[in-house]
Design a protein around this nucleic acid. Structure first.
Lengths: 182, 182
DNA sequence: GCTAAAACGGAGACAGTCTCCATATAGTCG
DNA sequence: CGACTATATGGAGACTGTCTCCGTTTTAGC
């Protein structure tokens, strides 16, 4: 990639991070381009779709999610606490920008999405936590990590789209109760 | 309401039902107006926002949801089965049109939404089921019906926004396991 | 029929998406 | 260094959808 291209790419990403935080992931792309000091054409060449741009912002995101999963495992806490811990961190990450949660939830089952790969990493992180607890015999038989992931994403989506500042803990408690061994 | 107004109102609603089914709740409102044979002004006078239009379509929806809740209670089935039954019917209703589930989930906590009232009816129906089971001693202590509603809406939203035809049963099983007495 | 009030509809202002291509720039090679 | 080529730029503008305003038409009551 040419030096000027790289410069613009980074500039767009930095601006998008600001604008998405201010206005959510539905903000105008032309506005992002304008504020980044580039033409709309440049933005669309680097990021053909809004999804690609959101995906670009999540570059280091997967690393953090992965790290959080491993950190949760490392605590060695009882199943209930470990899961709550992990789920809350996870939700914190996927609701970074308003509207992001639903996009991530949708990408999880869509191999055509530019975010699909990152969702895989995220799903892997979750699977590590679930497998760890499973090996400890702390879970009900046949808990499917992928479904857990979907469920928690659903919680995140609801919390994110609600205009009130919803507390996710009670919902997560139900999920946790639904998967730990009785 | 004047006769011609009533006529147009009904025409718009009927057309919206078709178009939303074809294209989801994000379909162009001007297209609905055109296909209904009215001007955009007429559509917007009757339904100032997209939400109001979706809401108009759900006129008899609340009755059906209520009836389903009472039917589920009347079966007298064990808690697990009754809940699965009710949840599945509920999801079937709120995913009537693609995109509807997330709008309903968002309206649930937004008193300013035109759908808010209908969400209350829906929440009441759910509360009846939960209260019934609670009275039978079939649930864990302190299950909050509102949170259950949010959780199930989350499942519906995920299923609806997924491009694959997702089976909601495994997710609902987790929720059910999370609320029935151990 | 006549009239006032109610409703209509479509032109058009506005905002966002996305493309095309004439112009500008970076990097390379003699 | 200067010339050349591939690469990248940016902004005009086509297109689509939202929503309003207001001159015209329709309805309902007298």
């Amino acid at each position: 990639m040419r030096a000027d291209a790289r410069r613009n790419y980074d500039k767009i990403l930095a601006t998008a991070r600001i604008v998405f935080t201010e206005r959510g992931t539905d903000a105008s792309l032309d506005e992002i381009a304008k504020r980044a000091g580039v033409g709309p054409g440049t933005l669309y060449r680097h990021f053909p779709t809004r999804e690609a741009l959101v995906d670009g912002l999540l570059q280091d995101w997967t690393d953090r999610v992965s790290a959080d999963a491993d950190a949760a495992i490392a605590t060695g806490l009882p199943a209930r606490e470990m899961l709550s811990d992990w789920f809350e961190h996870f939700i914190e990450h996927i609701t970074l920008h308003r509207g992001a949660a639903s996009k991530i939830a949708a990408a999880m089952d869509d191999p055509a999405s530019p975010m699909y790969r990152k969702c895989q990493v995220m799903a892997d992180a979750n699977r590590r936590v679930i497998d760890h607890l499973e090996a400890r015999g702390d879970l009900r038989p046949s808990v499917d990590p992928v479904n857990v992931m979907r469920l928690v994403s659903g919680v995140a989506t609801v919390a994110d789209s609600s205009c009130t500042d919803l507390d996710v803990t009670p919902m997560l408690d139900v999920v946790v109760d639904g998967i730990v061994a009785r």
